[in-house]
Amino acid sequence: MLTGLNLSILIFAFEGGGTIIDVNPGVIFWTIVTFVILMFILKKVAWKPILTALDQRESSIRESLEKAENAKEEAEKILLKNQEMLSKADEESKKLVNKSRKYADGLKEQMLKESKEQAQKIVNDATLEIERQREAAFEELKSQVAEIAVQAAEKILRKNLNMETQKKIADNFINEITKN
């Protein structure tokens, strides 16, 4: 009954002819023929187009990724450049403001100095003028006083000068000269 499960019978005994380890040369022949033809047909109609398509897709994905990466890098570069430019512009403007402020300050100071000088000069000029005017006035006064004095003296002399007094004065004069 249980011979149905006996493996030794499976391999070694089968009245219908043949066992499972019978190697039929015809089958080997046909399998090789089938396989070789199948391989060449598939190589032509299937493997080549499929593998190229896969390669193409992979390379296109790789390219897209690389492109995206490049674009990102480019954008970052531009951003950096923009920032740099912005900061440069900021610096430039700061410099410009500083410069103009300095200039304005300088100008202010100079103007102040100049105006001060001008004022001083005016004052000086004025002082000089006043001095000159004063001196002139003094001179005039002096000459006028002298004239008046001479006139007054003339008037007095005309009134008091006589022979005696004239002689006294002349004597005194002569004495002084001899003493010297």
Binding site: T3, G4, L5, L10, F14, G16, G18, T19, I20, N24
Partner: peptide, 17 residues
Amino acid sequence: VHKSEGGSGWILHHVLD
């Protein structure tokens, strides 16, 4: 017919070429 009586031949019949 012979094997269906309990032998193992029917298995081989299905498995063999």
